[in-house]
Every structure is written in C-alpha cells, then in structure tokens.
C-alpha cells in the first residue's frame, strides 16, 4: 500500500482554479479563459473562453464561451499575470488581418517542410509530420 501513496493526481492545479489562464493545445491553438475545473487526465473546464491568434507582436481574439478541453490535447496551462499582461508590448488588430499573415506564413512553411522531409527521409530520419503530430 505504501507504494501507492506517492501517486498523486495531476500535479497540484488547485491554486489555479478561478484564475485567468492560457491553455496551449497540441495543434498550436491558444485559449484564454477562467480556469474552473480539472481532473487527473488534465481535462480542463474553461469559462469566458477566447481563442487568440498571434503573428509576431500582433494578436486577435475570438469569443468561444464555455469549453471542456480533453487532456490529451493539452500542451501547457499557464497562469496569466494580470499586471504583466498590461505591460506586454502586444498590439490587437482584426482577426482577418492576423489570419491572412498566418496563412501566408504557413504556406511557405508547408512547402519547406515537404522539401525538408524528402531530403532528411533519404538520410534515414523519420518523417515527423506537422505541428501537433510530433506529440
């Protein structure tokens, strides 16, 4: 029985409950919301949730509402420091503006990735896929 005692649940996230948090997902998405609940699988319940996209130091937000995030898709959960948040040199612009720049960037990256895979694949390296597949 002693051997079982050191087994705890998902870290100790209890101090983050009801705080404003950032959740990073495996596909690179960033969610910001109020952290309401969690369990041992790192399933998270977020309230007043927004999705945020970034391009360099510009960002845009989209409202989502209440969200239950399945644990296996979670990369990290960070508490947002409300004071630091106001001092961050980020500039909010419209969603379509950021989206356009990201898409352009992705197109170039996608092309380079395919070429890279071909070269390294011939050297015996595993094709790793795109962001999110590496997990």
């Amino acid at each position: 029985m002693d051997a079982l005692i050191p087994f705890t649940t998902s870290g100790s996230l209890v101090d983050l409950v009801d705080k404003k948090v950032l959740v990073v997902l495996r596909d690179g998405r960033k969610l910001i919301g109020v952290f309401r609940s969690y369990d041992q699988f790192a399933n998270f319940l977020l309230e007043q949730c927004i999705e945020r996209i970034h391009f360099k130091f510009e960002y845009a937000d989209k409202d989502i509402g209440v969200l239950l995030v399945r644990g296996e898709n979670v990369v990290a959960l960070g508490e947002i420091d409300l004071i630091a948040e106001d001092m961050v040199p980020l500039q909010q612009v419209s969603w379509s503006q950021v989206e356009e720049k990201i898409n352009e960037d992705n197109k170039r990256r996608e092309r380079d990735h395919t070429i890279k895979d071909k070269v390294l694949g011939s050297m015996g390296f595993v094709n790793d896929g795109r962001e999110g597949d590496a997990y």
């Binding site: 996230l13 950032l22 960002y59 979670v74 990290a76 960070g78 420091d81």
Partner: peptide, 29 residues
C-alpha cells in the same frame, strides 16, 4: 510538471507566453 517564475527562450516566436509567470506542462509533450 509545475514551473514557477518562468521565462521563455525566443519570446518573439512565442509571444503568448509573455504574460505567463507560472505554468503546468503536460508530461506527454
């Protein structure tokens, strides 16, 4: 893993982490 007082290498590539001071990282990633 739970980390406190965090800083990120290459913040320009990860601007979303600028206001985050402590974080939980899922072991599998």
């Amino acid at each position: 893993i739970r980390l406190d007082g965090i800083s990120v290498e290459d913040p320009e590539r990860h601007p979303h982490m600028l206001a985050v001071k402590n974080c939980f990282i899922r072991g599998s990633v």
